[in-house]
Design a protein around this nucleic acid. Structure first.
Lengths: 337, 337
DNA sequence: CTGAAAGCGCTAACAC
DNA sequence: GTGTTAGCGCTTTCAG
């Protein structure tokens, strides 16, 4: 049996209400008894039961964080931002990894709801939020990362995706590339749509016709392997002379895979084909890689998400919140362009 | 007000015990009422309150996972193993990132204890467990990863570190390298001690004298930057002719940094200096990197840790558990040796 | 300043 | 099969 407030009350011959008060540093309590209680508590190794406390207070001081791929360094970086901000705000994080799987995501969101988290930060695995209806019904405070949910009460922390790919295309064209392909992440992803929009917008600006056969998408897992395989297909699909001379990838992982495929085909990066990624994960800056990429402020995004979530939690009123917090991406020009 | 078991009992005109039974699929309940209850529950969007349930049942179906650096891809991989095993066992994970900081680690462990997690998986930031005394006192079920705590009741999931570096040295010597340096992670780390032991053991086996000046350590953060800086120092400390011709690093991140430093000094890897890492993070196999490294079965380690933890939780008896589960590392020979 | 008592939402005897 | 009740550990009125 763990030591509870009651045990220590008995030891001291006071009521357990007093103990509770003393431990919570309540003003109305004799300094002396307070001291005695605290001493005893330490002596007995008392640990408050947060579960019981949560039942009474209706707040658990924990927030749920649902990400789709802990294996993509982008997300650990975001998670660190969330977590450190949480630590300073006095919250703990439930970190769940959906693996881009809707069912798992739904399962986690439900579990989190049942565990009475005070709020939720989520990068949904899909823009179709049907599986999250309980979330939406539950009126829980939530903020989204990298995904825009056009609904009141929710705010999204995102990067200006359109601007990101626009910068990428501008840079490519300035460097003389003309046949620019886009390796995306599936039509349904919000960020993908936006990045594609920026791509097309920039091409139009430079009077370059959008070529549908230059726009492709991997499905589900946005990792090196997918990038590798898709690029390989592209490499065989076109005559050598008709190949794109540059490709913009949805993220760095995809870009890394793309580069592998290009090199394997005995082509050079960037001389034959230039490659640009998105995210700027730490490995992209290694001297062997030096991937040109559109950097997202990952840590800040996590931090901001948590801070606005906490604000929302604390303002129990119907205060208005921005529905989007848009950060500016930065093009890091390295050696693959 | 959220909908509770009581609300739906009132709606249906039954006692709330019945509702509880129906919802928990208890045998002693009329099939018909069960159906009615479940329907009503869905209709009203009922979500059980896991907090209340935990208070009664004295189990929360959640386990805490404390890792030191979510930014090192080794740990996300372990975390995935833990999490997926947890999902199939019906547990949720509290993921905490201590950032190699003892205070934060202590803070997290306490928070986790207060939140009544059913068990703990932890890679301590330090072998000196003083800051975790509450953990040790609390008799909570725990398993350690990558760190051996010689105490009954605790089990550690580790890799055979001695064997790992032994293999590395053997390989190097076979390749003709003789002046092998070791870039470690501080004396106090268990895994570091073991890896150093393997290094010395293997050198002895090959009749090569251990040279203290070839054994160095980074402190605190075991990342690329630390590796880079330390190697840079080594490169300036020795005359060109007296430089090591190979270096074994405590982990892949350090090795990546080491390689940067070597190349920056206009030396070649592996011709001038060979480099071996430890872990085999996914980026090490990129064609631009191709780091020779001692691979750890990261995912399996996480999975195993969780599974034995769950076993421990379920066996409330004083059943004996192995104090160490030792997996075998595998040397992946690539291009840096 | 301190104690008694209610109640958070749920489960599990114990009756009926 | 179903209702009643106690109680998990804690906070918080409400009295005194």
């Amino acid at each position: 049996m763990a030591v509870t407030i009651k045990t220590i009350a008995e030891e001291l011959g006071v009521s357990y209400a007093t103990v509770s008060r003393a431990l919570n540093d309540h003003p109305d309590v004799n300094d002396d008894t307070k001291k005695r209680v605290i001493e005893k508590a330490n002596e007995m190794g008392y640990q408050p039961n947060a579960i019981a406390r949560g039942l009474v207070n209706k707040e658990t001081k924990t927030i749920g964080l649902v990400i789709p791929d802990i294996t993509n360094p982008f997300f650990p970086q975001v998670a660190r931002g969330v977590e450190e901000a949480a630590a300073t705000a006095g919250y703990n994080i439930f970190l769940c990894n959906s693996n881009w799987n809707k069912d798992r995501e739904e399962h986690y969101v439900n579990a989190l709801l049942q565990k009475q988290v005070d709020g939720l930060i989520i990068t949904p695995s899909s823009e179709d939020l049907g599986h999250l209806k309980k979330l939406l019904k539950s009126k829980i405070k939530a903020v989204f990362i990298s995904s825009f949910i056009p609904m009141e009460n929710y705010t999204s922390v995102i990067v200006d995706n359109v601007l990101g790919t626009e910068k990428a295309v501008d840079h490519l064209i300035e460097k003389g590339y003309k046949k620019i392909a886009f390796i995306g992440a599936g039509e349904e992803r919000f960020a993908n749509k936006e990045r594609l929009k920026g791509y097309k917008k920039a091409l139009a600006k430079h009077n370059i016709k959008v070529r549908d056969e230059f726009i492709t998408s991997v499905k589900r897992s946005y990792d090196q392997e997918s990038g590798y395989e898709l690029m390989k297909k592209i490499l065989t699909r076109f005559d050598k002379s008709k190949l794109p001379d540059a490709v913009i990838c949805y993220n760095d992982l995809l870009a890394l895979g793309t580069i592998q495929a290009i090199k394997e085909a005995e082509l050079r990066v960037p001389e034959d084909i230039a490659v640009i990624g998105f995210d700027d994960i730490s490995f992209s800056s290694l001297s062997e890689i030096k991937l040109t990429t559109v950097a997202q402020p990952k840590y800040e995004m996590g931090k901001l998400a948590l801070e606005t979530l906490v604000e929302k939690i604390k303002s129990n009123s119907d205060k208005e919140f921005k529905s989007q917090i848009i950060l500016t991406p930065e093009l890091k020009i390295r050696k693959t362009t």
